Amino acid sequence: MAASLPDLGIGRLRREVGRLIDRVRKRRTWRDRFPRLHDALEASSRFGFAANGFVYVSVGILMLATALDMRGQAVDPHGVLSVLAQQPLGRLWLILIGAGLWAFVGWRVLQAVFDVDHEGSNLQGWVVRAAQAASGLAYAVLASGMFELLDEVGSNMGAEQLAENQEKASVLLGLPFGGATLMIIGLVIAGVGIGNVVRGIISDFGATLICSKTVCRWVLPLARVGYVARGLAYLPLALFATLAGWRAQSSKVETFGTALEALERQPGGDLMLGLTAAGLIAFGAYAFVEARFRRIRVPKDLATG
Rank of each mutant, 00 (worst) to 15 (best):
H118V: 01
Q87K: 03
V153R: 10
A262Y: 02
A50W: 13
T214G: 10
S170I: 03
A207L: 12
L64S: 00
Q249S: 15
D69Y: 04
L89Q: 07
G60F: 09
I201L: 14
E160G: 07
I296Y: 14
A180I: 01
G60E: 08
L96R: 02
W126E: 09
A180M: 06
T242L: 00
L173D: 02
G154F: 14
G145L: 08
V141C: 14
K213Y: 08
P176I: 06
G174N: 04
A241R: 02
M146E: 09
F288W: 01
F240H: 02
S212H: 14
P267Y: 05
S250P: 11
A259N: 04
D76S: 07
Q132V: 14
N122T: 10
G200T: 03
E167F: 13
Y227P: 06
G120C: 04
L209C: 11
R71L: 07
G231W: 02
Q249R: 15
A259S: 04
L92C: 05
D22S: 12
V192P: 01
D39G: 08
G9N: 11
R230A: 02
F147S: 05
Y227W: 15
D69E: 11
L68V: 11
E264V: 10
V55G: 02
L101V: 05
L5W: 13
S203I: 00
Y234A: 06
R23N: 13
G186N: 00
K168C: 11
E148T: 09
E167H: 14
L64F: 03
A163L: 11
E42F: 11
G284C: 09
V105K: 01
L239P: 07
E152F: 11
G305V: 14
F205A: 05
E16S: 04
Q73M: 12
Y234L: 04
Q132C: 09
R265A: 13
T255Q: 03
I194N: 06
Y139P: 08
S212F: 04
P267D: 04
G145C: 08
T304M: 10
V289K: 05
V289G: 09
F256R: 02
C211T: 07
G186L: 01
V128M: 10
A138R: 07
R46Q: 06
W30H: 15
A223R: 10
A285K: 08
E290Q: 13
A103Y: 04
L280I: 00
L62M: 05
S170F: 14
F256D: 05
A262R: 13
W102E: 01
K168A: 15
A40K: 09
T29D: 15
K213C: 15
V253T: 08
R247S: 12
A277K: 04
L81G: 05
H78T: 13
L209G: 01
G179T: 06
L13S: 10
R71E: 03
G279F: 06
T255R: 05
G106L: 10
L273R: 03
L81I: 10
V198T: 03
A169I: 08
Q166E: 10
V17A: 10
A278Q: 11
E152Q: 12
G269Y: 07
V188E: 13
Q266L: 07
V219G: 04
P88Q: 03
A248I: 15
D7C: 15
V197H: 00
K26N: 12
R25P: 09
L150Y: 09
T29W: 15
M272K: 00
L237Y: 03
A3M: 11
Q111C: 06
F288G: 07
I210S: 13
L187Q: 00
L137E: 13
R247D: 15
G179W: 07
V83N: 01
